[in-house]
């Protein structure tokens, strides 16, 4: 038996917004630790990893590990029926062929009950090696969203460069070029501020497909801050924390010299 009750149902709605356009369907793995899902886009350029730890839920029960193979378009349609302040409960049997979703309004005067049929998804789980990143940058998530959107007008590639105390985003195309630099702020505890941490103070610059960066920013409402981690010739990590008990992370393979 699996049952997970999420007081802040909007978290699930927001997380799915950040997933559904990248991954058609995925295995949502439920265990006593929580719920996790990983998947790649059809071109295998970006890996998306969602983690919802059991502490995120006010009630969580998972007697045996359960895999929920969910079509994300269908899941999203159902979640759109939930109000932002609804409590969402997910329920499934031990070897389920369907998952039950229950939405309760905040004042408990409306309940909606949905059943989503599960699908068998043949999908490999990838191991993500521990990496020492050359640069870790935290920026307001709305600022990152705006930069990605603005630079997409110039071309299909965005170059992210980190040097001491500064992160620079640039794009070049037929209509011209653009360069947006964010300087590190003094007080890094504030969500409105920018922080830049570097290993060995070595500047780092990588090129990425703007289309994918824009997909990632669909998760902006999950967190005030987004963390970018860069390492030469490695995938970029774009992380949105879900409070203290979850995260939505994207790994984007870089564009490299052919």
């Amino acid at each position: 038996m699996f049952e997970a009750r999420l007081l802040q149902g909007s978290i699930l709605k927001k997380a799915l917004e950040g997933i559904r356009e990248l991954i058609t369907s995925g295995n949502w793995e439920c265990s006593s630790a929580g719920i996790s899902m990983q998947g790649m886009d059809p071109s295998h350029v970006a890996l998306t990893v969602l983690m919802l730890q059991n502490d995120l839920f006010d009630q969580f029960r998972c007697d045996r590990n359960v895999t929920l193979g969910l079509n994300h378009a269908t899941f999203s349609k159902i979640l759109k029926c939930a109000a932002n302040d609804d409590i969402i409960t997910l329920k499934a049997e031990d070897q389920p062929d369907e998952c039950n979703l229950l939405f309760q309004s905040a004042n408990d005067d409306k309940t909606s009950d949905f059943i989503i049929k599960l699908t068998d998804i043949d999908q490999e789980t990838l191991g993500i090696p521990d990496t020492e990143y050359a640069a870790t940058v935290k920026v307001p998530s709305v600022e990152f969203q705006r930069i990605c959107r603005d630079l997409s007008q110039f071309g299909d590639t965005i170059i992210i460069s980190v040097k001491k105390g500064c992160v620079e985003f640039s794009g070049t195309g037929e209509i011209g070029s653009a360069k947006i630099a964010l300087k590190e702020s003094g007080n890094v505890d504030d969500d409105e501020k920018v922080s830049v941490e570097m290993d060995k103070d070595t500047p780092c610059s990588l090129s990425f497909a703007s289309r994918y960066l824009n997909y990632f920013t669909k998760a902006t409402s999950l967190s005030d801050t987004v963390t970018l981690q860069l390492c030469p010739e490695h995938p970029l990590v774009v992380s949105y924390d879900i409070g203290d008990n979850g995260s939505l992370k994207y790994y984007l393979a870089p564009k490299i010299e052919e």
Binding site: S43, H44, L47, E124, G127, H234, A253, K255
Partner: peptide, 14 residues
């Protein structure tokens, strides 16, 4: 000329 790398070049199945 830049080419798009794939995730499989960096991460392997568990």
């Amino acid at each position: 000329m830049l080419g798009q790398a794939k995730i499989s070049a960096f991460f392997s199945p568990k």
